[in-house]
Simulated assay, not measured.
Amino acid sequence: MAWPGRPSGPRLTGLGGGLFCVTVMFLVGFLDDLLFGASLTVYGVLSLPVCALTALWVRGSDLLTAPVVVPISFAAGLLTVADGGGGFLGGVMGLVTALSTQAGWLYGGTLVAGVIVIVRRIRLIRRRRRG
């Protein structure tokens, strides 16, 4: 385990972290729709580890991007599981309804990413002051 010295895993740029998070959330939404019939609870639960990984894998210089891309990726993946009627307006209404009813998961994922980013930032500042 490499955590005491440095966190293990890839080091993503801010853009890379955003692309990773959006892509994985879109795939999670697609698989949720395929396997569980678009269960919003399953989608919300599976979004939390994606948020944590995004916050852990972003480079130290791009830490502040993680809590920003997490809600955007949640909404992007929600497009695949939101219950929209016919047409464009039905899809928009389904997305707005899903975002309002699943706000707890959205805030929870953002909170997870934010806490991880704050802890990583504090550790980074302490390490720079020592060295």
Rank of each mutant, 00 (worst) to 15 (best):
Asp83His: 15
Val115Glu: 01
Leu56Arg: 14
Val96Met: 11
Ile125Cys: 09
Leu46Trp: 12
Leu124Lys: 05
Thr23Leu: 12
Thr54Trp: 06
Thr13Tyr: 02
Arg123Leu: 10
Trp105Met: 05
Gly29Glu: 04
Asp62Ile: 07
Val28Ser: 08
Phe36Ser: 08
Ile72His: 05
Asp62Val: 08
Met1Ala: 13
Leu78Gln: 05
Leu15Pro: 03
Arg123Ile: 02
Leu53His: 01
Cys21Ile: 04
Val22Lys: 00
Leu95Gly: 05
Ile72Cys: 09
Gly16Ser: 09
Pro10Tyr: 03
Ser8Phe: 05
Phe20Glu: 06
Trp3Ile: 10
Gly16Pro: 03
Arg128Ala: 15
Leu31Gly: 09
Thr23Tyr: 02
Arg128Asp: 11
Ser61Gln: 14
Leu106Met: 15
Ile122Lys: 11
Val28Tyr: 02
Cys21Gly: 04
Ile72Arg: 03
Gly86Ile: 14
Ala2Cys: 03
Leu106Trp: 06
Thr13Gly: 14
Ser61Cys: 10
Met1Asp: 13
Gly114Arg: 00
Pro71Thr: 09
Trp3Leu: 15
Ile122Trp: 07
Tyr43Leu: 14
Val96Asn: 04
Cys51Lys: 04
Pro4Asn: 11
Leu99Tyr: 05
Gly87Asp: 06
Thr101Gly: 13
Arg11Ala: 14
Val69Asp: 06
Gly5Asp: 15
Thr41Gln: 11
Phe26Trp: 15
Leu106Ile: 13
Ser8Ala: 15
Thr13Trp: 04
Thr101Glu: 13
Val58Ala: 06
Met93Asn: 10
Gly87Trp: 05
Ile125Gln: 14
Trp105Arg: 08
Leu19Phe: 00
Gly86Lys: 08
Val50Thr: 02
Gly16Lys: 00
Val22Cys: 07
Gly14Met: 06
Gly5Asn: 11
Asp32Phe: 03
Gly94Gln: 08
